[in-house]
Amino acid sequence: MLDVQQVSVHYGAFQALHEVSLQVPAGKVVSLVGANGAGKTTLINTISGLLKPSGGAIFFEGQDLTRLSGHQVAGLGLAQIPEGRKIFPEMTVYENLLMGGYSAQARKLRSQTLEEVYTLFPRLRDRHKQLARTLSGGEQQMLVIGRALMMRPKLMMFDEPSLGLAPLMVKAVFEVVVQLKARGMTILLVEQNVRQSLRVADYAYVLESGQIVLEGESRAVLENEHTRRAFLGL
């Protein structure tokens, strides 16, 4: 469904990604793991059109994304759940969710999707009239995920969803990923939390200094010597 082909990205003279290739097949959860500064967010931002690659190409359902801007990529059904819980703080929870559902296709199904989101995250229903900035960190993360779901995306890209959350909330976030997968959602999961994310993923890529150094079935990656030493401290 998503096909990243030998993408390179430069920040000025600095090369952040070196010919990175990655595939996300429909209905699968693919995990991209790597340490801080490996280029994970750069890759996500390049896929979603916020950064332009200096080489390579990105295809989504056969369509070239390389020249599209962020909102056009989003319009194709590719939802990014940005790092750091980027809510709209001065809007209510309900208004935040509405923002996700303004595209033509999403609009028709808006009330139905809203109901689904509230069912998935009952806390959001309880707090729908509150300003988003008054939510706890975990609730804000749920809101961002819910807002992305309102777009009725075909593929969701999670950028560090567990970052800065309490352990219980981290668990809840991964639980949500599992639930979405069970409903057939295609997911690209970018995480530093290697153990947890490899547990929910089907396939995994390991990114180091802007290069894919390892890929394979999640289980194989999890048991790989290199991964164990580099990320799990074993």
Binding site: G70, H71, E90, M91
Partner: peptide
């Protein structure tokens, strides 16, 4: 308002 509050997030939601 979305653009004011968080431009990247708005763009990611399909707002031009």
């Amino acid at each position: 308002i979305a653009v004011r509050e968080n431009e990247d997030a708005a763009e990611a939601l399909g707002v031009d």
